[in-house]
Write a protein that binds this DNA or RNA. Structure first.
Lengths: 361, 361
DNA sequence: CTGAAAGCGCTTACAG
DNA sequence: CTGAAAGCGCTTACAG
């Protein structure tokens, strides 16, 4: 037959075979049913189905100025595999899934450069963006220049009108402190990724120190360290080289807490018998290790749902009010915290704080 | 000024300000330097920089029939968060990173539907695709209808001309068997995700059974079970309900092996003292748990690099020969395998097979 | 309800 | 080396 190399069927083809204009076909494709007679709509829809017509996104995006692409921007300085981090992977995966269900396309982009971001958004006609991690510096400027909805996560930006979904980091820190103090720990250490770079970790630390102080427990600065999933050994050494013996540790990321526990065990330091550890996030691995990790849980799927919902609302109605939703966190007692001077086997099942209603999910 | 709402600067703007045609600007943007005089090229480039011009991907894609998008298609039946699986996340993350470095854009798509895939590819003018997992059914048909390079991973398709990067699954199974047999285990069990759905697991199983038989060890079918990361308990129960006591277990995915170990420990069954476990993949978590997981390692970053390299080659030269590269696997002895009738604390440091050169990386 | 026409921003032969 | 023109496949006012 007269087939060309490119057999793609276009809207024009449909229009010709149906004996109508392209505008009409366009209308049925886009569901503007009130603009098309029942009869033609049917006929056209049939053509579309039988010919297997697929709209061309580029063309649509070009004339539409809307691409159905949502940029998922992950802040990272070094060039690395960000999905190796379980929290990032779980959150990104949840977002991708929700977006796909709503006929949008999530596009993951790792970058730190503010210009790179803007370039990316414009070149792809991106419809909206969800940010991972802290981008506090240039938020206002980016917002102005992009003119599409932004949703941040875990932002502590002082910009007032901002869409954000975060968690109660301060409370998370408090829960950890109360759990530790409630189990009789008084010599405490704290670990956060990077030298507490982000406000997120600063808040967790503040909440932690605050609740600790209410129990008359101090958190000296020299007991605060940098955490890194790849440097469990360094973490363990820091801890063990402290002049007084620490019995309770709070690490603001499960993945780092797990690395620390591993390094400690390797040195013959038992968790929770010798030292108790609390993590943060509740990644899947936390319930698979031995001992299971006691941790401050954040609801990652819920966070993803809020981020997408807010974004969708602003996509529909650009003038919608900005929203900053802060999700609750809960402490999940498992096996990595023991009571001081108690049988470690009973850890997590005793102590006044396990009856705290906020802890029993 | 006469600025409109939309301040985006286009190629046309550049052309006007530079006093040249759009074609010329297009040529400098696309690096066709031999078609433009040094002088004009300079002037135009300056304009581009100062005005912050960003090419519009949709327009380019429309006239070009090339989008710079690479589809990363993950096979999944249920609607779920595929990035919760550490292997998938690590592989996808590595791919995304490599693609971004080469100015391509990886777009993750979860689907099982063959039509859905084709639709997606065409609507986005996708330039190439990398498949995760098994798509053996309709490979030939898809290839014909898409006319862009495909790279499969872990495919055992019988289609002869196919790009694929896989690993030596059979050998992986053998390594596990030899390690177990070498440590004196004779009562063995096997776990694979799903009822050995994929050829990948079938091969691992075959290699495992084959090497076992060479040591005079049988692998009865009733000792072969279904593995699931979320069903550690069921796995443990299957194992413990066997008439004769199994001492060595091979699980074809680390994430499932870890779940099994956790469930066993919870039942008072110690690993490796009571039962030895070998996993597959070597995900990051495997070295963080206690005991560290002995596992058959596959090099995920390398796999990603091959997949991208092959794809790039075929993007440049569509007629390039297809490639099917099979990567080696190695056994990483760690703490989850003990010698039978030996002191379990010495596990992994004894036994004839630890001196096997193929095992010492 | 329907269609003709212009336009989205780029690239690609084709002349010169 | 350079430019005018057509075209990629769609959507969107605008008339009717």
């Amino acid at each position: 037959m007269g087939k060309r190399r490119n057999t793609t069927v276009t809207l024009k083809d449909i229009a010709e075979k149906a004996g109508v204009s392209k505008a009409t076909v366009s209308n049925v494709i886009n569901g503007n049913r009130q603009k098309v007679s029942e009869q033609k709509a049917h006929a056209i829809q049939r053509l579309i189905d039988t010919l297997g017509y697929v709209p061309n996104h580029s063309a649509r995006s070009l004339s539409n100025r809307s691409s159905k692409i949502i940029s998922l921007i992950v802040h990272t300085d070094r060039d690395r595999n960000v999905l190796e981090d379980p929290y990032t992977a779980a959150f990104a995966g949840a977002l991708l899934q929700l977006l796909q269900q709503r006929d949008y396309f999530g596009m993951i982009r790792c970058t730190s450069g503010y210009n790179d971001i803007l370039k990316n958004l414009r070149s792809w006609n991106v419809d909206g963006v969800i940010f991972f991690g802290t981008f506090d510096k240039d938020i206002r400027d980016m917002q102005e220049r992009a003119d599409i909805p932004f949703v941040f996560t875990d932002s502590y930006s002082s910009v007032r009108r901002i869409n954000n979904v975060g968690i109660d980091d301060f409370k998370g820190g408090m829960l950890a402190a109360e759990h530790l103090a409630g189990h009789g720990h008084r010599q405490i250490a704290f670990f956060a990724p990077n030298p507490v770079s982000s406000e997120v970790d600063a808040q967790r630390k503040e909440g932690f120190a605050y609740a600790l102080s209410k129990h008359g427990v101090a958190l000296p600065e020299r007991n605060c360290f940098m955490a890194s999933a790849s440097q469990g050994d360094a973490m363990a050494e820091s801890l063990l080289s402290l002049p007084e013996k620490v019995t309770g540790v709070f690490v603001t990321a499960d993945i780092c807490a797990i690395a620390l526990i591993e390094a400690l065990e390797r040195r013959g330091v038992k968790v929770p018998k010798d030292v108790s550890v609390i993590g943060f996030d509740d990644i899947p691995a936390s319930r698979l290790i031995t001992p299971k990790l006691t941790t401050v849980q954040q609801d990652i799927p819920l966070k993803a749902r809020y981020a997408v919902d807010i974004l969708m609302r602003h996509l529909k109605e650009p003038a919608a009010p900005t929203e900053n939703v802060i999700l609750d966190v809960t402490l999940i007692p498992r096996g990595s915290v023991a009571s001081i001077n108690h049988n470690p086997d009973a850890a997590g099942e005793t102590g006044p704080f396990d009856t705290n209603p906020s802890l029993s999910r």
